[in-house]
């Protein structure tokens, strides 16, 4: 069952903390994804690094899965600003007109997925309280490396969910069910 959360602002630049929780009682899974929806890509490029159960993580934290809870990242290839006239980059609401065959606006917010299966399994195996928080560290990917660093403005999105999946094979094993076959 996906859980949407409200992010809390941390003290370090570029850092947001999502109080996402998941324990072994929430059930087995074959795959676990963090799904970000409504992701902005209108400005300069950026990346968002994901750390599990590490509320102290910031832009200087090593991307170490074992010691730091690093679980992965998503990267946004941005448009780098608006190059049209006033209103050119305003995103219209989705049309419900069946005769409107135009493609959606190029800046329509995106969906990004970070698969955290191994990282979540590690947390559940090593930490009895399970997953307590997800720390998101946004770093600008400016054209020149010297200009890169944590950003509080580039990385915006509408919603974050933790989605877990169970393959049919594992679901059968969990339920103790026999595979369905011909009678």
């Amino acid at each position: 069952m996906p859980a949407a959360v409200t992010l809390e602002k941390a003290t370090a630049p570029g850092v947001r903390i999502a109080p996402l929780r998941f324990t072994v009682e929430d059930g087995p899974f074959t795959r676990a994804d963090l799904v970000f929806t409504g992701v902005s890509h209108s400005d300069l490029s950026y990346e968002v690094r994901v750390f599990l159960n590490n509320p102290q993580a910031d832009a200087g934290t090593p991307r170490d899965p074992v010691g730091q809870g690093y679980a992965g990242r998503f990267v946004v290839f941005g448009h780098g600003g608006c190059y049209g006239d006033v209103g050119h980059c305003d995103i219209p609401a989705p049309s419900s007109d069946p005769t409107d065959l135009r493609l959606r606006h190029p800046l329509t917010p995106a969906t990004k997925i970070v698969t955290i299966t191994d990282a979540l399994r590690r947390v559940l195996a090593e930490q009895p309280e399970g997953l307590q928080s997800v720390t998101l560290v946004a770093v600008s990917m400016a054209p020149r490396r010297k200009d890169r660093g944590p950003t509080d403005t580039l990385a915006t999105f509408d919603q974050l969910e933790l989605q877990t999946y169970l393959s049919a094979t594992e679901a059968n094993a969990v339920a103790g069910a026999l595979p369905v076959g011909p009678a």
């Binding site: 990346e47 990267v75 054209p143």
Partner: peptide, 22 residues
Amino acid sequence: TRLENVHDAVHVWVGGSMSAVP
């Protein structure tokens, strides 16, 4: 969805002009 994330990462890895769509 997953491949495009890698695609995006390579664009910003190159940096400079490759790091923005226009």
